[in-house]
């Protein structure tokens, strides 16, 4: 596991080094391009800001009412048998439907348990290695006007469950 943590420290700097170095080698206006890109990034965030306000408000209400704890405790009785942390259950379920709602829940877990706690780490890895199964499927299949999706859903759920299990195991090892 130490090697993974070590690698994590190196990936970003190496990537930045490679991109900037390669851009220089190709004699591109890297600084101007970076600034233009940064402006695009700015716009992307501005676009998601209203969504974040809405969703964090929703999750905030749900958390403050005590409902999230109630659900976690309820499902926790079942998930304890398979050694899956109950706090992660709402996140794992919502992740299947909506990326931004899942983000709201993950941020809530960061606040409750801390980003570097087991729950915080598992939630981080889980968010990084799963996709919104139902959302993606409905958007893509709707574009192709397909109604019979055959084995796509079982396959996608299999990947998601694998990702979730891998996340909790990796977080425990960290």
């Amino acid at each position: 596991m130490k090697i993974l943590i070590f690698l994590s420290d190196f990936i970003m700097p190496l990537m930045i080094f490679y991109i900037v170095g390669f851009g220089l080698l190709m004699k591109k206006n890297i600084y101007d391009e970076f600034i233009k890109g940064a402006a695009d990034g700015f716009k992307t965030v501005l676009n998601i800001m209203p969504t974040l306000i809405g969703l964090m408000m929703g999750v905030g209400i749900l958390r403050a009412s005590g409902f999230l704890n109630f659900i976690a405790e309820l499902i926790g009785k079942a998930t304890n048998y398979i050694h899956f942390p109950s706090e992660l259950v709402p996140l794992a379920i919502v992740r299947l439907f909506s990326s931004s709602a899942a983000t709201g829940l993950a941020l809530d877990l960061f606040k409750e348990f801390g980003t570097d706690s087991f729950i915080g780490l598992a939630a981080s890895i889980m968010m990084g290695c799963t996709e919104t199964v139902f959302y993606t499927m409905s958007v893509y299949f709707m574009a192709a006007k397909v109604t019979k999706t055959r084995w796509t859903l079982p396959g996608a759920l299999l990947c998601t469950v694998t990702g979730i299990i891998a996340s909790t195991i990796l977080a425990r090892l960290m």
Binding site: I3, S8, S124, S167
Partner: peptide, 13 residues
């Protein structure tokens, strides 16, 4: 710190 573990989890899935 979660970068490499996330890559591992993504690769497995």
């Amino acid at each position: 710190i979660i970068t490499a573990p996330a890559i591992v989890a993504t690769t497995i899935s």
